[in-house]
Write a protein that binds this DNA or RNA. Structure first.
Lengths: 166, 166
DNA sequence: CTTTAACTTAACCTTGACGTTGAGGTAAGT
DNA sequence: ACTTACCTCAACGTCAAGGTTAAGTTAAAG
């Protein structure tokens, strides 16, 4: 009944990385890791006896999601937190056992998650639309520039010829 | 001979808005306007005799571009500056007269403009792609959530029925 | 001509997101 | 046991992007 640590299994919950390695692997500083923890973006990792932090693959994945959101959206960390939190409700819901009594509570959580996700979705959709428009404008502009470039080349050729004909 | 303010003519270069009006019309604070000027994002507007700033429609349009880029990309102002600067090379090129001698110089400017625009374009394209992917993931997740919601509802109904049957 | 509203610069304050020491505790190799 | 690398927390520093007075100037209205 009791699940023992399977032999070579790489349980993503198994914490084994120290902060230095995480920093190196993910490209953020140790300070940033502690800072994110402090701000609730990363939940406190398990510690070894001496107090050293030990991170799991899950922690790293969460961090990568944070990085991605930050890069893409450029939002304040507080909002990023909301977003990743919403992502993880999924996992939380899945992992909870099911006393019948808690159904309504789970429902409430789910409702909340749906709200947040919808908000996110709309926000992203809006952004994608706006940026797509900007993208096509840039494309147009490039066309214009290249046309001008051709004109300039012709002008230059013409003026060279003229001078040669004098 | 002296051009008085033509009756209905709205030369976009004609400066006539004081900082307060600009702030109100664009929704940024006066401080922000001065700050952007200080940082080179807005070129120094013309001043009236007493030193009051007078903005033109062009200035406002530039500001709107800045706002838009900021909102969409969330980049630091330094980068936003580069972008709007690049946009304006276009106008500069258009407004320059054409001594034959300057063709090669204009060409160099144009090359530069194309480079910058291409960089911008690629950057935006990358972002749009990433965000589109994120968008579709969010869509999926919403589907999942809604399905779970249905399950929860059914469970709840079942448990109600059970209790009624005891 | 005075009052008031809008503007000026300058200086300091705030918040977010970390960077950078400093003083020590822990782990690992020799 | 010692050294060295890695870690702990705490505290102060910094930079961006403005916000917030303060003290004085100008424009406009009565």
């Amino acid at each position: 009944m009791a699940r023992k640590r399977q032999a070579p299994a790489i349980d993503p919950d198994e914490p084994y990385l120290q902060i230095g390695e995480v920093a190196e692997r993910t490209g953020v500083t140790q300070r940033t890791l502690r800072f994110y923890e402090e701000k609730g973006l990363l939940r406190p990792p398990t510690r070894m006896d001496g107090g050293f932090r030990l991170y799991s693959e899950n922690d790293i994945q969460r961090l990568e999601r944070i990085k991605r959101l930050k890069r893409l959206l450029g939002f304040p960390l507080a909002e990023i937190k909301e977003m990743v939190d919403a992502e993880e409700i999924k996992l939380q819901l899945r992992s909870e056992y099911r006393p019948e009594s808690a159904i309504s509570q789970k429902k409430a959580q789910l409702v909340r998650a749906i709200e947040v996700t919808e908000k996110q979705y709309n926000l992203i959709r809006q952004k994608v639309d706006d940026m797509a428009e900007m993208q096509s404008k840039l494309e147009e502009r490039l066309e214009t520039f290249r046309t001008w470039m051709e004109h300039l080349d012709k002008e230059a050729a013409a003026s060279r010829k003229e001078r040669a004909n004098v």
